[in-house]
Design a protein around this nucleic acid. Structure first.
Lengths: 185, 185
DNA sequence: GTCTATAGCTAGATAGAC
DNA sequence: GTCTATCTAGCTATAGAC
């Protein structure tokens, strides 16, 4: 048929999940096709430059998510800073399924083609740190202190996701999320 | 020739480095052969069950390193706790090349065969946490508090290595290492 | 836009000479 | 114990029908 079998947003979501879980080298075209519900050739129709283009596309998908769910919320002066942070924490908790999901930014940082993704990964991490720093400033910190706290949150989230992923113990992730308000204050 | 071309310890080291850098799926037999200086068939002679056996062997290599460089040192009552910790920090700094190297326990936690390594990865992480906890107890904390601190150090080290690996900024790793004494006190 | 079929290559793994 | 040569399966990617 000529009509789309799967919505682009659903394809993005499945590619995101698969790359997050298996990394770039572990996510074969066969697996990606099964995950999206499309045949390999159809995936190539949507991403003519192949797997690398898919991963870069998913990274932009994540960058957009961060912009919408962290950065924009963080800057919304109509809402109290503490409330903004609660919304961000809730979004992050949902994205990572309470710690059960790996972080794409981490899984794409290891492998044969990691260099190709480094720039986009860094931009995403910077956006996250800036979002957290914005909240921290509004909670009463100087820009310099807030910037350091933002970077520290990135470190703690990544560490908690590694530990939760390796051990299966969701409390690593859960604890960091619940401590975010005090860590940014 | 019938004699060994490369010492087993050197093979272990190169396999460790390659799996750490590229992960399991990214470390092809071809790449592993080049890294060790052996041909593929020679690697199969040493590891008849193939790549999975190599990765498991390297995990035991790491477990031994942790036992020698962290656990045993941590329990050495002949030395002051603060001095023991300095030795451990120094060893960790060297292993990770100041943050430039990825952590094998993390890179083997993602990919198509991650399940096969999970048990060993967990054991290594537990050993590390126990080593840190031992120091923390000797610095005056209760067993319960020390245990939590040990787990937190694992989280911080993993997080710092992810951030340093993704951004190239060695200070994430360096800062955590320098804070270990106060974090365990 | 999706599909079947397949090209061309590289992966993990083996056989057998030395 | 190491090597060259090779097998098979899986990989990324493409061709062309519908």
């Amino acid at each position: 048929m000529r009509t789309q079998k799967v919505e682009p947003e659903n394809v993005d979501q499945k590619l995101f999940e698969t790359f997050s879980k298996l990394g770039y080298d572990g996510a074969s075209m066969e697996v990606l096709a099964e995950a999206t519900g499309l045949k390999k050739a159809s995936l190539y129709h949507r991403f003519p430059k192949g797997k690398k283009e898919m991963a870069l596309h998913v990274l932009r998908f994540v960058e957009q998510w961060i912009t919408d769910s962290v950065v924009t919320i963080a800057h919304d002066q109509k809402i109290r800073a503490a409330t903004r942070l609660r919304k961000i924490v809730s979004a992050i908790n949902e994205l990572y399924a309470g710690g059960a999901n790996n972080c794409l930014l981490r899984t794409l940082s290891v492998g044969t083609d990691a260099d190709a993704f480094k720039e986009d990964v860094q931009r995403c991490l910077d956006l996250l740190a800036d979002g957290f720093a914005t909240i921290s400033i509004d909670l009463g910190n100087t820009a310099a202190v807030a910037k350091e706290k933002g970077k520290q949150i990135n470190l703690l989230l990544q560490g908690s996701l590694v530990m939760t992923g390796a051990t299966g113990d969701l409390s690593y992730f859960k604890n960091i999320l619940s401590r975010l308000p005090s860590l940014l204050a």
